[in-house]
């Protein structure tokens, strides 16, 4: 805060209605946390439906979960956890003013997110191929249970919404990457990186629950 020149530079990103950068940063972070609260309750509705139906049809969940590929589910878990790591590293780079580090870490994150989506794509097409469509279009006969369609409806709703969140995340990361290349972020100002990171970690956390709940029923 001592040299006037840095003071001037600091004020660039500061919006007129905030007193200082700290207030702006903390506000943005709290705002993102509140948004995450809404995300948790949004998915919470689906988890609630999952729990209710699982308590009603335990055997269905056992049978149907066999048709999900644990191996690829696990790979995707690893992919997402790694991407969480790289986002955290991107934030660290920003805090340390390492411009290159921000860019590289963001790029890896985007790549990992793509890998996740590609694997999801193959999982979906494999299901569609045998007639495991969502809801009323379900035609698969390999599961001896009347409500087999419901398990997959829940599966598609959960993973589908999660997938949409991943895609949104990719969009945000690309935007961050473009800004990082213009040198917008520094130890003084990296709010967008920080709060996008929070969002990304939540997407990771949701998958951490989806994986055992959908794939690992034994």
């Amino acid at each position: 805060m001592e040299q006037p020149s840095t003071l001037e530079k600091k004020q660039d990103h500061l919006q007129h209605h905030f007193v200082d950068s700290d207030q702006q940063f903390e506000s943005a972070k709290m705002g993102m946390w509140i948004f995450l609260v809404t995300e948790i309750l949004f998915f919470g509705g689906l988890f609630a439906a999952y729990i209710v139906f699982r308590s009603w049809y335990p055997e269905l969940f056992l049978l149907a979960s066999d048709h999900l590929d644990t191996f690829w589910g696990a790979v995707n878990t690893v992919v997402l956890i790694s991407s969480s790591l790289t986002v955290a590293m991107a934030i660290r780079s920003a805090q340390l003013n390492q411009q290159k580090g921000i860019i590289i870490n963001l790029a890896i994150t985007i790549a990992l997110a793509f890998v996740f989506m590609v694997i999801k794509y193959f999982e979906y097409t494999e299901k569609f191929a045998v007639g495991i469509f969502p809801g009323g279009y379900y035609t698969y006969e390999g599961i001896a249970h009347d409500q087999a369609n419901i398990f997959f409806s829940i599966y598609y709703m959960m993973t589908g919404l999660h997938g949409i969140h991943v895609v949104v995340g990719i969009g945000l990361m690309v935007w961050l990457l473009l800004r990082a290349r213009k040198g917008h972020f520094s130890s003084e100002y990296y709010t967008p990186v920080e709060i996008t990171g929070l969002y990304w970690h939540l997407v990771d956390i949701i998958w951490i629950f989806l994986f055992p709940l959908l794939y690992l029923i034994d």
Partner: peptide, 24 residues
């Protein structure tokens, strides 16, 4: 972080538990 953000996270979990708990 500030404790309030942690409180937010906990709150969301508590209310999810209320939703599912009473529904059950």
């Amino acid at each position: 972080d500030t404790k309030f953000n942690l409180l937010l996270l906990i709150t969301s979990i508590v209310f999810f538990l209320i939703l599912i708990g009473i529904t059950l």
